[in-house]
Amino acid sequence: MSRPGLPPKAAALVRAGHGLVGLGGLLLLLEAVPRLGLVDERFLPPASRVLATLAAELGTPELWAALGATLRGWALGLAIAFAAAVAAGVVIGIVPGLRAMTNSTVEFLRPIPSVALVPLATLLFGPSLGSTLLLVVYAAFWQVLIQVLYGVAAVDPVAHDTARAYGLSAWSRVRHLLWPTALPYVMTGLRLAAAVAFILAVTAELVIGSPGLGAEIQVAQSSGAVPAVYALIVLAGLVGIAVNAAVRLLERRVLAWHPSVRSEAAA
């Protein structure tokens, strides 16, 4: 909060205090609404029961296995998409004329929603890791590729000509000029891709039935275990927050040398 006269640390504390009040208010509301009978408890169990269910679920090995499966599909798919997109982006960026040739195809394939591939994934892989990977890789690939292309286009032409004039080989130009320039863009792409990949990993489990959190939610829903459905959704949200935080941390680490991060840390 921009309250004048307060040192930054105290301001951050005030801010965190407000945030806690907000979270507490939400929990209270979700406890009170079903208890007072405003909404049927069968459809909206009180917050305390949902959290108790979550705690009980966290004690079972099945939940951890499902969580592990989700995270494995997410990480593996993201890694494959990232490697492929960086390689493709750099090649498209440095080979003259390739950008113009691929542009229409990239712009055509990129907006295709990856859920369109659900039937194909079901047919080819059935309810397994392969289905998850197909959806995750397709969705994450374009996010990274577009950012790599922006990044490659941002290389300073003068620096590029200088590097050529000094006789740097193609590989050292990529290593010492192109990669540092593109890195902030690449990290943005990774951050966007990580969020999309998590959504698609859960989607594949939910719709196709690949093992993971999504499949657990589907099972809980069809067996009428309402508090478990809520508990698993809360868990999915927490994992989503963790995923975002982890990627942001990585971004800050990798870009510690970059002015945009340096100034932020100094402030």
């Binding site: 907000g22 859960v202 939910l206 459905v229 927490l238 989503g240 927050i241 995923v243």
Partner: peptide, 26 residues
Amino acid sequence: RATLEPVLEFFRAIPPPVLVPLIMLL
């Protein structure tokens, strides 16, 4: 903003497709 931010960040972090079974129920 300070009060609602954590709540909103949480809701945003939930992958939207998991809401489908829940809303079907409701």
